[in-house]
Structure formats: structure tokens, C-alpha cells
Computed example of a mutant assay.
Amino acid sequence: MVLYMKIVLVAVPGAGKSTTLGLVKQRMPDVFIVNYGDVMLDIAKRMYGITHRDEMRRRIPVDEYRKVQELAAEEISKMQGDVIIDTHASIRVQGGFYPGLPDRIIAKLRPDAIILLEFNPRDIIERRSKDESLRVREAEGEAEIEMHQLANRYYAFAAANAGECSVYVLDYRNKPQSKPFEHAEASADFIINLLNANRKLH
């Protein structure tokens, strides 16, 4: 019997998760890539007529928003095969941070691993400048990005503790790229090796 893996991938916005996951998908087409926010939006569309992700927090009461979070976790938990979940360990809100993976969500997702990507804040600022969808975000300096990465690390370990799973920190702060997308390729290699090692075990 094959025992598949469920991996949660987290990083600050604009860090390069989508690029990394695209590389994983190219080399392992049978792996399912799931964006947690997209699943929540599909549920919110059905239940509340929401049309955009930014509307969810504004238009849905807090208790109902949490219910949508839980329904998304239940839906993802039922997926068969190797699954990688693209989400956030923490979400910046009004100068503070909100948990992206609270205990009740981790309990439903039951991941096998949480992979945290960390980068030099200057690299993230450069990547964001090239991403049209991120330009509307409030500008963050290096200190704010580093604080968010620190919050991510705390929240990722707390989530792993609640979910009794492993945490892998891929820290590229002091590893400048010698070519474009080198960090994404290294991250994709790590994820693919983790999945392949699990398949060999089972």
C-alpha cells in the first residue's frame, strides 16, 4: 500500500512559492498542488456569493470565515495522492500577525511535513517588484519582511507541534543566487527528494 504525503509549503508573500511549486509540478506531474486560499474562495462563492479573495474577510463574519477555513481543510484532507498545500504560516494584519495554520486547521489537514522558505529580505523586495499582483500591497521594508519571516518560523513550529509533523526550514538568507531561480530550483529539489524518499519507504 502506498502512503502518500501531505506537505504544507509556507513563505512570506512574493517569496517564490509559486515558482517553486511550478518546478515541482513539471518534474512530478502526478503531485497535486493546492492553494488553500483558492479552495476557501470556491467555498465562499458557493456559500456567500463572494467573487474575490479580498472580500472574504470583509464580508464574511469571523465565525463564518473560520467555518470556511475548516471546510477547506476538510476538502483538502480528502484528496488522494501526494498533495502540496500552498498557504501562509502567518498573515500580516494591522501591524500584527494572524495564524494561518491554527490548531483546528492543522488537526483537519494532518500534514506530514511543513516546509518553510526563508530569504534575504532584499531578494523578496526585488521579486515583489517584478510581480504585478503584489504591487498593490503596502510597501514593506527589509525590517518588516524579516519580522514576518520570524513570525512565520514561530507559527510553523507551533503548527507542527499541534499536528505532530516535521518542520523543514530552507534558509537562503546568506545564499546569493548565482543564476535566476536558483533558490526555487533548490527548494523544488528538496521537495521532490522528500516525496521520492517517502515513496521508496512505502
Rank of each mutant, 00 (worst) to 15 (best):
R127D: 08
P176T: 00
L21T: 06
L170Y: 03
Y98N: 07
I85D: 08
L117Q: 03
Y48P: 06
L41V: 02
A158N: 10
H183C: 03
M79H: 05
P61F: 06
L23D: 01
K25F: 07
V62R: 15
P176G: 01
R92D: 02
I192A: 00
H183M: 06
Q94F: 11
D103H: 09
E185I: 05
D123E: 14
Y155C: 03
A72Y: 03
P102K: 04
S178P: 11
I106E: 02
G163Y: 00
K130H: 13
Q69F: 06
K67E: 14
I50W: 11
R58H: 12
A73P: 00
L117K: 01
G49K: 14
E140K: 15
Y48I: 15
G37D: 08
E64P: 15
M147Q: 15
E55Y: 10
G95M: 01
I105Q: 05
D131I: 06
N196G: 01
M40F: 08
F119C: 08
F157A: 05
G49A: 10
D171K: 15
A186G: 05
V12L: 06
M5Y: 05
R53C: 02
A156R: 03
M147E: 15
S77C: 01
F32G: 14
L101C: 03
E70H: 12
V167W: 14
N152K: 09
Y154M: 08
T87P: 06
L23M: 12
N193P: 00
G163W: 00
M56R: 08
Q69I: 02
H52P: 01
I85H: 03
S90L: 11
P29M: 01
I60F: 10
N193W: 09
D171L: 14
N152Q: 03
I105K: 02
S129D: 09
R173T: 15
A89F: 12
G16N: 01
Q94E: 10
Q80F: 06
S166K: 13
P99F: 10
S77F: 11
Q149G: 09
Q177I: 14
M5K: 09
K179E: 11
I76L: 00
V169H: 07
M147R: 14
D103C: 04
E144H: 05
A73I: 09
I124G: 00
L21N: 04
E132N: 04
D123S: 13
L170A: 05
D171T: 13
V24G: 02
V12N: 07
V136M: 07
R135W: 02
A159M: 09
R53A: 09
